[in-house]
Amino acid sequence: MMKCKKCGIKASVNMRHHKMALCKEHYLEWIPEQTERFIKKYEMFKREEKILVAVSGGKDSLSLWDILIRLGYQADGVYLGLGIDGGVEYSHESQKLTEQFAQQRNLKLHIVDVEKEYGQSIPMLAEKTHRGYGKPCSVCGLAKRHEMNRIARDLGYDVLATGHNLDDEAAVLFGNTLSWEGTYLQRQSPVLAESNGLARKVKPLCRFYERDMAAYAMLSGIEYIYEECPFSVGSTSIYYKEMLNQLENQRPGAKLTFYLRFLEAKNSGLFAQPIAVEFATHLCQKCGQPTSAPDLCSFCRMIEKVSLEN
């Protein structure tokens, strides 16, 4: 029988990558303790700062919100209504679970409905703009980045926190390494500092395995959306995650080492720009957010294009 490393009773969760098993009680203490350690280690935010948590109704973002509140941080949530149905009322269900989570804990939740705000849902925008080769994931990512940043900035939050876990980070890293995307590799980090018009972004769960976060959500009794986003079926990120799990199965700790050694290598200058390349940034004439284009940002350009076609 696997025993809890701290108290010796039957363990609920075994983490082969840490060579450690814990019972429910100690696991639910350990995850917040470690989160606090990562928040401090990567200098994500301070206790007096106002945090906006990007919540999707999934296990990671709701767990992150739960952990930050348990740790005593001032954390509000923002939910983005994407208008995805996929036969399982995906957006409707995830919004319901997010609202329920916030109500039960008396937390402040901002809800932005993309269709109400811009006249088109994510699948509609994707169809009309032909971005992403028939899949709305590219439009969804663009809208999320734009809207989360807008809300964080407009409502005066110091930092935007997302629930990216280690499997998310390792999958992105794997993809970017396969194609040697130098610029993306250089940007991947637990913290993205605030820069003109862009809120500081942090990923406090970036060192926890996805399985560990699912265990946290289950053991904490957090009700999350179990259904997969209908558009993520067959996605590259899931394919990479499965591949990395094959590796992990044979070599426990491989995913964690891959990510942590990357951060170390980056800090040692492995991905430093050979020459100072400054990205020219302009402010979008419509929303005021930074953009590389001189007039409108990608999101506002997309909305304008769709509006003109209507």
Binding site: K24, G58, A215, V233
Partner: peptide, 24 residues
């Protein structure tokens, strides 16, 4: 109740598996 990999499965056990990988 969550069970770990060394658990011996018994007659009539129904084990519910929760997929943990999500995309996005």
């Amino acid at each position: 109740e969550m069970i770990e990999e060394d658990e011996i499965l018994k007659d009539g056990d129904i084990i519910k598996l929760v997929a943990v990988i999500s995309g996005g």
